[in-house]
Simulated assay, not measured.
Amino acid sequence: MGDQVRRNMPLFPMGIVMQLTELSARQIRYYEENKLITPARSEGNRRMFSFNDVDRLLEIKSLLERGVNLAGIREVFEMKEKGINQMPPYYKKEPSEADLHKHLKKELYQAGRYGKTSLIQGELSRFFN
């Protein structure tokens, strides 16, 4: 039995998946309603999740925490299915400290350049002596 077959085997009931992902049953059902996941069903019509389903739920949770909406998550998954594993540039991670410093310095410079006072200039000027 190959690894991919094992990862697709429906093994976990909803309760175990809730513990593994720290998502509520309602959240998991919502992602299923929006066709982000498709768990298998048992003879009793209970949802059964595979390792891949759990991984996908964890990825959904991570993307939501980074501010990506459901349409964006769907787009990310479509890109992965097409073999494009790179995140679109508009889903960048949090900016680094250096990026923030550069952006704030630029804002201060631009505000002073055009004779306008930035709303946050007084607060930020203490960082750029």
Rank of each mutant, 00 (worst) to 15 (best):
K102M: 14
R6C: 10
L64C: 12
E94R: 15
G15E: 13
D53R: 01
K92P: 01
E43V: 03
R66K: 14
S125R: 15
K102G: 00
E123G: 01
Q121R: 07
L64D: 03
K105Q: 13
A98C: 01
E32V: 02
K93I: 06
F77V: 02
S96R: 06
F12C: 04
I16T: 15
H101P: 01
R56T: 06
F127K: 06
E81Y: 13
L11C: 07
F49D: 00
Q86D: 11
E107K: 11
E32N: 02
S96D: 11
K61G: 03
A40I: 01
Q110P: 00
V76D: 02
H101T: 08
L124F: 11
S96C: 06
N34V: 11
S24K: 10
Q121S: 15
N129Q: 10
R29P: 01
M14G: 03
I120T: 14
N129A: 13
L20I: 09
L63H: 08
Y91G: 02
S62C: 10
A98G: 09
G2S: 14
S42Y: 09
L36I: 05
L23Q: 08
A71K: 10
R47Q: 05
Y31M: 04
L20Q: 03
M79Q: 08
D55V: 09
I120L: 15
I84Q: 15
R66N: 12
L36W: 11
L124I: 06
Y31K: 00
T38Q: 15
N69Q: 10
Q110F: 11
E78Y: 15
R29Y: 07
Q4R: 14
T21Q: 07
R126G: 03
Q27L: 07
